[in-house]
Design a protein around this nucleic acid. Sequence first.
DNA 1: AACCCGGGGAC
DNA 2: GTCCCAGGGTT
Length: 335
Amino acid sequence: MNTEFAPLLIAWQRRHGRHELPWSGSREPYRVWLSEVMLQQTQVATVRAYYARFLERFPDVHALAAAPLDAVLALWAGLGYYSRARNLHACAQAVAALGGFPRTAAELEQLPGIGRSTARAIAAFCFDERLSILDGNVKRVLARLLAFEQDTAQARAQRELWALADALVPTRAADMPAYTQGLMDLGSTLCTPRQPRCGECPVAVLCQAQTQGRQAELPVKSRRLTRGRREHWWLWLERAEDQALWLQQRPAKGVWAGLWTLPLFDSEPELQALLPGQALELLPRIEHALTHFDWVLHPRRARWPQGEPELPGRWVAREELPRYGLPAPLRKLLG
DNA sequence: AACCCGGGGAC
DNA sequence: GTCCCAGGGTT
Protein backbone atom coordinates (compact mmCIF):
# COMPACT_ATOMS: atom_id res chain seq x y z
CA MET A 1 0.00 0.00 0.00
CA ASN A 2 2.58 2.57 1.08
CA THR A 3 4.52 2.34 -2.15
CA GLU A 4 1.63 1.78 -4.56
CA PHE A 5 -0.65 4.66 -3.63
CA ALA A 6 1.46 7.70 -4.55
CA PRO A 7 2.46 6.63 -8.10
CA LEU A 8 -1.14 5.83 -9.01
CA LEU A 9 -2.38 9.13 -7.62
CA ILE A 10 0.35 11.17 -9.30
CA ALA A 11 -0.24 9.59 -12.71
CA TRP A 12 -3.95 10.22 -12.38
CA GLN A 13 -3.46 13.83 -11.30
CA ARG A 14 -1.26 14.63 -14.27
CA ARG A 15 -3.83 13.26 -16.69
CA HIS A 16 -7.20 13.82 -15.01
CA GLY A 17 -6.62 16.31 -12.20
CA ARG A 18 -7.70 19.93 -12.15
CA HIS A 19 -5.24 22.06 -14.09
CA GLU A 20 -7.40 25.06 -14.94
CA LEU A 21 -7.63 26.72 -11.54
CA PRO A 22 -6.09 30.20 -11.28
CA TRP A 23 -3.42 28.93 -8.86
CA SER A 24 -2.81 25.58 -10.61
CA GLY A 25 0.82 24.68 -11.01
CA SER A 26 2.11 27.80 -9.30
CA ARG A 27 5.25 27.48 -7.22
CA GLU A 28 5.27 31.10 -6.17
CA PRO A 29 4.78 31.22 -2.38
CA TYR A 30 2.71 34.39 -2.42
CA ARG A 31 0.17 33.03 -4.88
CA VAL A 32 0.06 29.60 -3.28
CA TRP A 33 -0.29 31.05 0.22
CA LEU A 34 -3.07 33.43 -0.83
CA SER A 35 -5.02 30.65 -2.51
CA GLU A 36 -4.59 28.28 0.42
CA VAL A 37 -5.83 30.80 2.96
CA MET A 38 -8.79 31.81 0.83
CA LEU A 39 -9.68 28.15 0.31
CA GLN A 40 -9.80 27.38 4.03
CA GLN A 41 -13.35 26.13 4.55
CA THR A 42 -14.33 27.89 1.35
CA GLN A 43 -15.20 26.36 -2.00
CA VAL A 44 -13.26 26.93 -5.21
CA ALA A 45 -16.24 28.53 -6.94
CA THR A 46 -16.50 31.15 -4.21
CA VAL A 47 -12.78 31.92 -4.11
CA ARG A 48 -12.12 32.51 -7.82
CA ALA A 49 -13.34 36.11 -8.06
CA TYR A 50 -11.80 37.14 -4.72
CA TYR A 51 -8.46 35.65 -5.71
CA ALA A 52 -8.37 37.59 -8.98
CA ARG A 53 -9.29 40.86 -7.26
CA PHE A 54 -6.65 40.37 -4.57
CA LEU A 55 -3.89 39.64 -7.05
CA GLU A 56 -4.81 42.65 -9.11
CA ARG A 57 -4.87 44.97 -6.13
CA PHE A 58 -1.98 43.36 -4.24
CA PRO A 59 0.34 41.79 -6.84
CA ASP A 60 2.94 40.73 -4.29
CA VAL A 61 3.46 40.31 -0.59
CA HIS A 62 5.02 43.76 -0.25
CA ALA A 63 1.98 45.48 -1.72
CA LEU A 64 -0.21 43.58 0.71
CA ALA A 65 2.05 44.36 3.66
CA ALA A 66 2.02 48.07 2.85
CA ALA A 67 -1.78 48.30 2.55
CA PRO A 68 -4.00 49.49 5.42
CA LEU A 69 -5.81 46.65 7.18
CA ASP A 70 -9.14 48.28 6.31
CA ALA A 71 -8.36 47.98 2.60
CA VAL A 72 -7.68 44.27 3.02
CA LEU A 73 -10.89 43.75 4.98
CA ALA A 74 -12.89 45.65 2.37
CA LEU A 75 -11.57 43.34 -0.33
CA TRP A 76 -12.23 40.26 1.83
CA ALA A 77 -15.80 41.29 2.70
CA GLY A 78 -18.30 38.59 1.79
CA LEU A 79 -15.77 35.75 1.89
CA GLY A 80 -16.32 34.99 5.57
CA TYR A 81 -14.08 34.04 8.48
CA TYR A 82 -12.66 37.53 8.71
CA SER A 83 -9.86 36.63 11.09
CA ARG A 84 -8.29 35.17 7.96
CA ALA A 85 -8.01 38.67 6.47
CA ARG A 86 -6.50 40.07 9.67
CA ASN A 87 -4.00 37.21 9.85
CA LEU A 88 -3.27 37.50 6.15
CA HIS A 89 -2.27 41.11 6.60
CA ALA A 90 -0.17 40.36 9.69
CA CYS A 91 1.47 37.46 7.87
CA ALA A 92 2.33 39.64 4.88
CA GLN A 93 4.04 42.12 7.17
CA ALA A 94 5.98 39.36 8.90
CA VAL A 95 7.08 37.91 5.56
CA ALA A 96 8.08 41.33 4.28
CA ALA A 97 10.17 41.84 7.42
CA LEU A 98 11.81 38.44 6.92
CA GLY A 99 12.62 39.32 3.33
CA GLY A 100 10.55 36.47 1.91
CA PHE A 101 8.59 33.35 2.78
CA PRO A 102 10.35 30.69 4.88
CA ARG A 103 11.03 27.51 2.93
CA THR A 104 10.01 24.84 5.43
CA ALA A 105 6.62 23.80 6.79
CA ALA A 106 7.88 24.09 10.35
CA GLU A 107 8.79 27.74 9.85
CA LEU A 108 5.73 28.59 7.77
CA GLU A 109 3.51 27.24 10.54
CA GLN A 110 4.83 29.91 12.90
CA LEU A 111 3.23 32.64 10.80
CA PRO A 112 -0.24 34.02 11.58
CA GLY A 113 -3.10 32.25 9.80
CA ILE A 114 -0.89 29.39 8.62
CA GLY A 115 -1.68 26.16 10.44
CA ARG A 116 -0.22 22.73 9.99
CA SER A 117 -2.06 21.79 6.81
CA THR A 118 -1.65 25.14 5.06
CA ALA A 119 2.05 25.21 5.96
CA ARG A 120 2.54 21.78 4.43
CA ALA A 121 0.58 22.68 1.31
CA ILE A 122 2.83 25.69 0.68
CA ALA A 123 5.96 23.69 1.47
CA ALA A 124 4.91 20.86 -0.86
CA PHE A 125 3.83 23.06 -3.77
CA CYS A 126 6.68 25.55 -3.61
CA PHE A 127 9.58 23.70 -2.04
CA ASP A 128 8.87 19.97 -2.63
CA GLU A 129 8.87 19.16 1.08
CA ARG A 130 7.83 15.56 1.72
CA LEU A 131 5.09 16.08 4.28
CA SER A 132 1.37 15.55 3.79
CA ILE A 133 -1.50 17.95 4.08
CA LEU A 134 -4.58 16.84 6.04
CA ASP A 135 -7.70 18.69 5.00
CA GLY A 136 -11.29 17.55 4.65
CA ASN A 137 -10.52 15.87 1.35
CA VAL A 138 -7.59 13.88 2.67
CA LYS A 139 -9.44 12.76 5.78
CA ARG A 140 -12.19 11.36 3.61
CA VAL A 141 -9.83 9.71 1.13
CA LEU A 142 -7.76 8.11 3.91
CA ALA A 143 -10.75 6.98 5.92
CA ARG A 144 -12.05 5.12 2.87
CA LEU A 145 -8.73 3.88 1.56
CA LEU A 146 -7.83 2.35 4.92
CA ALA A 147 -11.34 1.67 6.23
CA PHE A 148 -10.42 3.95 9.12
CA GLU A 149 -13.21 3.48 11.66
CA GLN A 150 -12.42 6.10 14.28
CA ASP A 151 -14.37 9.29 14.73
CA THR A 152 -12.27 11.76 12.76
CA ALA A 153 -13.32 14.58 15.08
CA GLN A 154 -11.35 13.07 17.95
CA ALA A 155 -7.82 14.22 18.67
CA ARG A 156 -6.44 10.69 18.72
CA ALA A 157 -7.88 9.95 15.30
CA GLN A 158 -6.38 13.17 13.96
CA ARG A 159 -2.95 12.19 15.23
CA GLU A 160 -3.20 8.80 13.56
CA LEU A 161 -4.42 10.33 10.31
CA TRP A 162 -1.46 12.72 10.20
CA ALA A 163 0.91 9.78 10.62
CA LEU A 164 -0.91 7.68 8.03
CA ALA A 165 -0.92 10.57 5.59
CA ASP A 166 2.81 11.15 5.98
CA ALA A 167 3.50 7.46 5.42
CA LEU A 168 1.94 7.67 1.95
CA VAL A 169 3.90 10.57 0.44
CA PRO A 170 5.96 9.78 -2.68
CA THR A 171 9.64 8.87 -2.51
CA ARG A 172 10.71 11.53 -4.99
CA ALA A 173 10.47 15.04 -3.59
CA ALA A 174 9.86 16.46 -7.06
CA ASP A 175 6.55 14.60 -7.12
CA MET A 176 5.17 16.43 -4.08
CA PRO A 177 3.30 19.15 -5.97
CA ALA A 178 1.43 16.70 -8.22
CA TYR A 179 0.84 14.37 -5.30
CA THR A 180 -0.56 17.07 -3.04
CA GLN A 181 -2.74 18.44 -5.79
CA GLY A 182 -3.83 14.87 -6.53
CA LEU A 183 -5.07 14.36 -2.98
CA MET A 184 -7.20 17.49 -3.25
CA ASP A 185 -8.45 16.71 -6.74
CA LEU A 186 -9.34 13.14 -5.86
CA GLY A 187 -11.35 14.21 -2.82
CA SER A 188 -13.00 17.01 -4.71
CA THR A 189 -13.93 15.30 -7.98
CA LEU A 190 -14.20 11.53 -7.32
CA CYS A 191 -14.00 10.62 -3.64
CA THR A 192 -16.84 12.99 -2.80
CA PRO A 193 -18.84 12.93 0.44
CA ARG A 194 -21.87 11.48 -1.28
CA GLN A 195 -21.99 9.10 -4.24
CA PRO A 196 -18.26 8.73 -4.85
CA ARG A 197 -17.34 7.74 -8.40
CA CYS A 198 -15.29 4.67 -7.54
CA GLY A 199 -15.49 3.41 -11.11
CA GLU A 200 -13.13 6.18 -12.18
CA CYS A 201 -10.90 6.14 -9.10
CA PRO A 202 -7.20 5.46 -9.77
CA VAL A 203 -6.73 3.82 -6.37
CA ALA A 204 -9.95 1.81 -6.20
CA VAL A 205 -7.93 -1.40 -6.33
CA LEU A 206 -6.24 -0.36 -3.07
CA CYS A 207 -9.35 0.97 -1.36
CA GLN A 208 -10.67 -1.07 1.54
CA ALA A 209 -13.97 0.76 1.67
CA GLN A 210 -14.50 0.03 -2.02
CA THR A 211 -13.65 -3.63 -1.46
CA GLN A 212 -16.07 -3.84 1.44
CA GLY A 213 -18.75 -1.67 -0.18
CA ARG A 214 -18.68 0.74 2.76
CA GLN A 215 -17.90 4.02 1.02
CA ALA A 216 -21.10 5.58 2.32
CA GLU A 217 -20.26 4.83 5.96
CA LEU A 218 -16.83 6.44 5.96
CA PRO A 219 -15.48 8.66 7.29
CA VAL A 220 -17.15 8.55 10.71
CA LYS A 221 -17.85 11.98 12.14
CA SER A 222 -19.61 12.52 15.42
CA ARG A 223 -19.81 16.14 16.35
CA ARG A 224 -23.23 17.55 15.95
CA LEU A 225 -23.43 21.05 17.27
CA THR A 226 -26.62 22.62 18.49
CA ARG A 227 -27.38 25.83 16.69
CA GLY A 228 -28.52 28.83 18.68
CA ARG A 229 -30.68 31.72 17.61
CA ARG A 230 -30.07 35.46 17.90
CA GLU A 231 -32.34 38.37 17.12
CA HIS A 232 -31.38 41.98 16.59
CA TRP A 233 -32.85 45.21 15.33
CA TRP A 234 -30.85 46.95 12.65
CA LEU A 235 -30.96 50.71 12.26
CA TRP A 236 -30.70 51.94 8.68
CA LEU A 237 -30.12 55.63 9.27
CA GLU A 238 -30.00 57.91 6.24
CA ARG A 239 -28.92 61.52 6.33
CA ALA A 240 -31.67 63.62 4.76
CA GLU A 241 -29.48 65.84 2.61
CA ASP A 242 -27.44 63.19 0.77
CA GLN A 243 -28.60 59.70 1.83
CA ALA A 244 -25.29 59.02 3.56
CA LEU A 245 -25.44 55.98 5.87
CA TRP A 246 -24.47 55.76 9.52
CA LEU A 247 -22.01 52.87 9.80
CA GLN A 248 -20.02 51.57 12.71
CA GLN A 249 -17.02 49.29 12.71
CA ARG A 250 -17.27 45.95 14.47
CA PRO A 251 -14.72 45.05 17.16
CA ALA A 252 -11.55 43.19 16.14
CA LYS A 253 -12.93 39.93 17.54
CA GLY A 254 -16.23 38.14 17.15
CA VAL A 255 -18.73 38.00 14.33
CA TRP A 256 -17.90 40.25 11.35
CA ALA A 257 -14.70 41.36 13.08
CA GLY A 258 -13.46 44.64 11.66
CA LEU A 259 -16.28 45.00 9.15
CA TRP A 260 -18.66 47.96 8.96
CA THR A 261 -22.35 47.58 9.68
CA LEU A 262 -25.54 49.38 10.58
CA PRO A 263 -26.01 49.82 14.33
CA LEU A 264 -27.44 46.72 16.01
CA PHE A 265 -29.86 46.78 18.96
CA ASP A 266 -31.09 44.03 21.25
CA SER A 267 -34.67 45.27 21.12
CA GLU A 268 -36.93 47.56 19.15
CA PRO A 269 -37.52 50.01 22.06
CA GLU A 270 -33.76 50.51 22.38
CA LEU A 271 -33.60 51.43 18.74
CA GLN A 272 -36.67 53.66 18.89
CA ALA A 273 -35.23 55.52 21.86
CA LEU A 274 -32.73 57.17 19.55
CA LEU A 275 -35.49 58.57 17.39
CA PRO A 276 -38.21 59.63 19.81
CA GLY A 277 -41.61 59.99 18.22
CA GLN A 278 -40.29 59.36 14.74
CA ALA A 279 -41.96 56.85 12.45
CA LEU A 280 -39.74 54.02 11.32
CA GLU A 281 -40.01 52.21 8.05
CA LEU A 282 -40.28 48.48 8.70
CA LEU A 283 -38.35 46.42 6.21
CA PRO A 284 -38.73 42.66 5.78
CA ARG A 285 -36.82 40.56 8.30
CA ILE A 286 -33.53 39.05 7.21
CA GLU A 287 -32.64 35.52 8.23
CA HIS A 288 -28.93 34.91 8.12
CA ALA A 289 -27.43 31.53 8.95
CA LEU A 290 -24.00 31.35 10.55
CA THR A 291 -22.25 28.21 11.67
CA HIS A 292 -23.27 28.36 15.30
CA PHE A 293 -26.54 30.23 15.22
CA ASP A 294 -29.37 31.51 13.12
CA TRP A 295 -29.54 35.27 13.09
CA VAL A 296 -32.79 37.16 12.63
CA LEU A 297 -32.33 40.82 11.76
CA HIS A 298 -35.12 43.37 11.68
CA PRO A 299 -34.16 46.38 9.56
CA ARG A 300 -35.74 49.69 10.55
CA ARG A 301 -35.21 52.65 8.26
CA ALA A 302 -35.26 56.29 9.29
CA ARG A 303 -34.10 59.70 8.14
CA TRP A 304 -31.80 61.87 10.20
CA PRO A 305 -32.27 65.59 9.64
CA GLN A 306 -28.80 66.94 10.34
CA GLY A 307 -25.80 66.53 12.60
CA GLU A 308 -24.86 63.23 14.15
CA PRO A 309 -26.74 60.68 16.25
CA GLU A 310 -25.49 59.76 19.71
CA LEU A 311 -23.92 56.55 18.49
CA PRO A 312 -20.47 55.32 17.67
CA GLY A 313 -19.75 55.41 13.96
CA ARG A 314 -19.65 57.86 11.09
CA TRP A 315 -21.57 59.04 8.06
CA VAL A 316 -20.54 57.22 4.92
CA ALA A 317 -21.50 58.61 1.53
CA ARG A 318 -22.98 56.19 -0.96
CA GLU A 319 -20.07 56.53 -3.34
CA GLU A 320 -17.63 55.71 -0.53
CA LEU A 321 -19.27 52.36 0.27
CA PRO A 322 -16.97 50.26 -1.94
CA ARG A 323 -14.05 51.22 0.29
CA TYR A 324 -15.80 49.74 3.32
CA GLY A 325 -16.03 46.08 4.18
CA LEU A 326 -19.69 45.24 4.52
CA PRO A 327 -20.95 41.80 5.58
CA ALA A 328 -22.90 39.87 2.96
CA PRO A 329 -26.42 40.42 4.33
CA LEU A 330 -25.86 44.17 4.57
CA ARG A 331 -24.58 44.27 1.00
CA LYS A 332 -27.80 42.54 -0.02
CA LEU A 333 -29.99 44.81 2.09
CA LEU A 334 -28.52 47.95 0.57
CA GLY A 335 -28.93 46.42 -2.87
C1' DA B 1 -11.13 19.15 24.14
C1' DA B 2 -14.47 22.44 23.15
C1' DC B 3 -15.70 26.40 21.11
C1' DC B 4 -15.65 30.31 17.88
C1' DC B 5 -15.62 32.11 13.29
C1' DG B 6 -19.25 33.20 7.26
C1' DG B 7 -21.11 32.38 3.40
C1' DG B 8 -22.51 29.69 -0.26
C1' DG B 9 -22.63 25.43 -3.21
C1' DA B 10 -24.77 21.01 -3.78
C1' DC B 11 -28.21 17.85 -2.76
C1' DG C 1 -33.56 21.63 5.49
C1' DT C 2 -28.54 19.27 5.85
C1' DC C 3 -23.78 18.66 4.97
C1' DC C 4 -19.68 20.30 3.49
C1' DC C 5 -15.91 23.24 2.14
C1' DA C 6 -7.53 23.36 0.28
C1' DG C 7 -8.78 25.13 8.83
C1' DG C 8 -6.85 28.19 12.31
C1' DG C 9 -7.05 30.53 16.69
C1' DT C 10 -8.49 30.92 21.41
C1' DT C 11 -9.74 29.35 25.87
